[in-house]
Write a protein that binds this DNA or RNA. Structure first.
Lengths: 335, 335
DNA sequence: CTGTTAGCGCGTTCAC
DNA sequence: GTGAACGCGCTAACAG
């Protein structure tokens, strides 16, 4: 239905090569010719067939993005970070969300093969086994929030351990000595790192790290809500609670308030991520800010770099710093 | 780098046509031949080049999705709805978020042209002028949350007006007679409809609709937070506040609580959307549930229908019902 | 500067 | 059943 380059060429009385030249801005074409071609292209409402271009240029100018199912707020921010950079470079973004199941992820990756020039995969699970088996050698791949780099071109992580340690340190500075932790799923890489950060802060302050004080959760608000009760059952009672992410902290806050526990007076609380709502909780949630959008941006930037041969393809890594955000749930005065 | 169909054919000692046949499942091929081809394809790690397939089949099996910048849960949910359906039908999703600027949207649409078989565009602004000028005739387009259907194949909306009316009615049932509204931007279609619903509920109950009681916002938490002060300055004081979306309601709740206003005792509060956090606010936020994910699913379903000729391409419309969710911010007892 | 031509990788008639 | 050959729309040498 739409006009092809050939029709434009015929109508403008030039060759397809010339049309191609003027449309791709490049080469040398006589200004008069150029203008004439441009006009007839306009008149014919000519739109280049991107599929054909991709085929002949052997590049799709598209990156595939695979994200886990959860991470509601993250989803948006990461993609927007990627998308913004991509857009600026005339690249496109093909998304697909696996449901955190290995087999499904495999399927999705296979489906994207041949449609993308590179991949960005967020895979917070501990096992990252499928990469080398599923992704063809030579397809640049950026791994997000994943424990290992094997088979990937590059890995991007937050500084979870240090961030968590800073949060817990801050709680300690407030005078707390019995600090419980609401942990994430043990097979989640971020969750493990944050737990490790918690432990190292405790150790560094010569505080006992009682395993009973580590309560299991799964990063959902619901699990945080349910954990509140278990925290209150702890003996001796902790005076502070560090949740491995804000969603759980928000769930826990709700659960605590239902039990008339005052935060931070009866129990100080801190989270991780600094999701947008954290600031609007009452009290405001102290947390570690995680640059989600930046993660997406860096992922694309680096992908583009290896795509254009400016960066090696053999597994570098980078860590993005987090920042302690003091609000009032930890006991800090309102600013 | 990857193997082509030709190599498979040569290695298997058959023609490319045969390879193509077995790979596309169809036609009649001798079982022995089929198996042999399958094996060598496997051995060569053959992966069909999707770009080439698209070119020869004149279809990309890809849908483009254009969403406004407004971050938040919506983004994720709508895309996931679309993506899930697409995945099931072996389609792909190309995303791109405009920044709510017409010109930018145009650019993004143009960039996707020739790469997609259809478009899903969310455009809550009142003016939807660019469609017919920018989108080639014949490219199926589903419009989301938009006021008009001109030039689109189909339009999908929430029942904002009815939903808002129900929320306000509920507030009235609680005995409130002075109900203020925290409205969204006036150029936003959803916001206008919700305002209209508010007004009709008031009218229906013979309550005065004082314009002073309508406070302007922009759907962000921040605008809700700032609006809280203005609500408190109203005279006579309203006894209930209806926010046009949950984000603003959450911002307002925070602002009110900072002023020691008790919700719902001093001021009842209700929102709209039922975002995941609404339930975890303290008090729980009464709101209208909006099936965001379903919106995405329906969008793809219908797009596929027109793509396969099962549905007309000439501008039908559908409205998705919302549901009143009673929590405690309106004065309802905890369940 | 510009036109001709050969692919890009695959689906698909149309003969055999 | 199977193979040869053409075409999808465009880019990229290679000639002029």
């Amino acid at each position: 239905m739409p006009a092809t380059i050939r029709e434009v060429a015929r109508k403008a009385d030039v060759s397809v090569a010339t049309v191609s030249r003027v449309l791709n801005g490049s080469d040398s074409v006589r200004p008069a010719t150029r203008e004439h071609v441009l006009e007839t292209a306009q008149a014919l409402q000519y739109i280049p067939n991107e599929t054909a271009r991709s085929l002949s240029q052997k590049q799709t100018r598209t990156v595939g993005v695979l994200l886990p199912d959860m991470h509601g707020q993250f989803f948006a921010q990461v993609i927007q970070g990627i998308e913004e950079q991509a857009q600026a470079q005339n690249y496109h973004v093909l998304v697909s969300s696996s449901h955190s199941e290995e087999e499904e992820a495999r399927t999705m990756i296979r489906a994207m093969l041949g449609r993308v020039d590179g991949l960005v995969i967020m895979w917070p699970k501990s096992r990252v086994p499928f990469l080398s088996e599923t992704i063809p050698k030579g397809l640049p791949t950026i791994l997000l929030n994943a424990p290992a780099v094997e088979g990937a071109s590059f890995a991007l992580n937050f500084d979870n351990r240090r961030g968590a340690r800073n949060v817990v340190r801050h709680l300690i500075e407030h005078g707390h000595r019995r600090i419980a932790m609401l942990a994430g799923a043990s097979e989640n890489h971020d969750a493990r790192e944050r737990l490790a950060g918690y432990r190292s802060a405790l150790e560094e302050a010569d505080l006992a790290a009682d395993d009973d004080y580590v309560i299991g959760g799964d990063f959902t608000r619901e699990s945080g809500y349910e954990a509140a009760r278990r925290v209150l059952a702890l003996s001796p009672s902790p005076t502070a609670l560090f949740a491995a992410n804000d969603s759980m902290a928000i769930g826990a806050l709700r659960g605590l308030q239902e039990e008339d526990v005052r935060v931070p007076d009866d129990l100080a609380l801190a989270g991780f991520d600094d999701i947008p709502t954290a600031r609007f909780m009452m009290p405001g949630l102290t947390t570690a800010h995680v640059p989600m959008r930046r993660l997406g941006e860096r992922a694309f930037e680096h992908l583009l770099a290896v795509l254009s041969g400016e960066a090696p393809d053999d597994g570098g890594a980078e860590t993005l710093a987090t920042e302690l955000i003091r609000r009032t749930s930890c006991g800090c005065p309102p600013s």
